[in-house]
Amino acid sequence: MRRGTRGRLELITGPMFAGKSAALIARAAAHGSSALVMKPAFDTRDGAALIASRDLTQAHALAVSAWPDAAARAHPVLVIDEVQFMVAPHYAGDIVTDIEGAVSGGACVTIGGLDTDYLRRPFDTIVRLSASADRHLKLLARCHVCDAPAPWTAKKNDTGHLLELGDDDLYEARCDRHWTPPF
């Protein structure tokens, strides 16, 4: 990090199955040991110390439930997966403020996350990060019904939980034509 120089904030969003984690893993690999990869401690789907993609790529990650000050300051590049999960009660503090502080300190930060929940409501964390992002890349998945471009995550069954870990057992990508609320 260069002191006194603002870093960069890149946001990669989209529905589930869009390739967000693969893009983050590629970014981390391009920066090697200068990158610190983080994920929410709440997300244990790939184990405590990994992020993994459906294309079978992986990256070692630091599972966090609060901002890792010393580790973050030691790396000029920060890569954060599943930022929508970094809210109370799964995260102590305000992840947006923490990220903006790192960028102000000169870090180049790339973040991945769902832009909307399964009811097509935007995640507040993503909305706030979008406001200060230098670049926002919105990815699309393929609709599980018709294979058309899909901007939405659909939940197969309503479990009553907004932040719920799952994969294709619980969620599907859907196009405008085939998205429906869960029942």
Score class of each variant (00 low, 15 high):
residue 139 L to E: 05
residue 156 K to Q: 15
residue 145 V to M: 09
residue 135 R to V: 14
residue 162 L to Y: 09
residue 151 P to C: 04
residue 162 L to M: 14
residue 122 P to F: 12
residue 153 T to G: 03
residue 157 N to I: 14
residue 117 D to I: 06
residue 150 A to G: 02
residue 103 V to H: 03
residue 162 L to H: 13
residue 166 G to T: 06
residue 107 A to L: 08
residue 120 R to D: 08
residue 124 D to Q: 11
residue 135 R to P: 10
residue 152 W to H: 10
residue 110 T to Q: 05
residue 116 T to P: 10
residue 134 D to F: 09
residue 149 P to G: 10
residue 119 L to N: 07
residue 145 V to Q: 10
residue 162 L to S: 14
residue 105 G to M: 03
residue 132 S to D: 04
residue 102 A to I: 09
residue 133 A to Y: 06
residue 120 R to Y: 12
residue 112 G to P: 08
residue 157 N to L: 13
residue 107 A to F: 05
residue 105 G to W: 00
residue 156 K to Y: 10
residue 143 C to A: 05
residue 108 C to M: 14
residue 154 A to K: 10
residue 159 T to S: 09
residue 101 G to S: 11
residue 165 L to G: 08
residue 126 I to H: 05
residue 164 E to R: 03
residue 127 V to H: 06
residue 154 A to V: 09
residue 147 D to P: 07
residue 152 W to N: 02
residue 152 W to D: 00
residue 140 L to T: 13
residue 163 L to E: 12
residue 112 G to K: 07
residue 160 G to I: 04
residue 116 T to H: 14
residue 105 G to I: 01
residue 157 N to E: 14
residue 156 K to A: 12
residue 109 V to W: 03
residue 119 L to C: 15
residue 114 L to N: 08
residue 104 S to L: 15
residue 138 K to S: 14
residue 141 A to W: 03
residue 117 D to Y: 05
residue 140 L to S: 14
residue 108 C to G: 15
residue 156 K to D: 11
residue 152 W to Y: 14
residue 165 L to W: 04
residue 102 A to K: 00
residue 120 R to C: 09
residue 143 C to D: 03
residue 162 L to I: 15
residue 149 P to Y: 02
residue 165 L to R: 04
residue 163 L to Q: 07
residue 116 T to A: 13
residue 160 G to P: 12
residue 125 T to K: 06
residue 139 L to R: 02
residue 140 L to V: 13
residue 117 D to A: 03
residue 103 V to T: 10
residue 117 D to M: 04
residue 155 K to A: 13
residue 117 D to L: 08
residue 148 A to P: 05
residue 106 G to V: 00
residue 118 Y to V: 04
residue 120 R to N: 13
residue 146 C to D: 11
residue 109 V to L: 07
residue 152 W to K: 00
residue 104 S to G: 15
residue 114 L to Q: 08
residue 116 T to F: 09
residue 111 I to E: 01
residue 139 L to K: 01
residue 132 S to I: 01
residue 109 V to A: 10
residue 155 K to R: 08
residue 163 L to Y: 15
residue 152 W to G: 00
residue 162 L to C: 14
residue 163 L to K: 05
residue 157 N to Y: 13
residue 128 R to D: 07
residue 112 G to S: 09
residue 161 H to D: 14
residue 153 T to Q: 02
residue 158 D to F: 11
residue 141 A to F: 07
residue 131 A to S: 08
residue 103 V to Y: 06
residue 151 P to W: 06
residue 144 H to G: 12
residue 146 C to T: 03
residue 141 A to Y: 03
residue 129 L to S: 05
residue 120 R to E: 12
residue 113 G to I: 04
residue 139 L to Y: 10
residue 150 A to R: 00
residue 113 G to C: 02
residue 113 G to K: 00
residue 142 R to W: 11
residue 125 T to G: 04
residue 157 N to V: 12
residue 125 T to P: 12
residue 108 C to R: 11
residue 161 H to W: 11
residue 111 I to F: 15
residue 129 L to D: 06
residue 113 G to T: 07
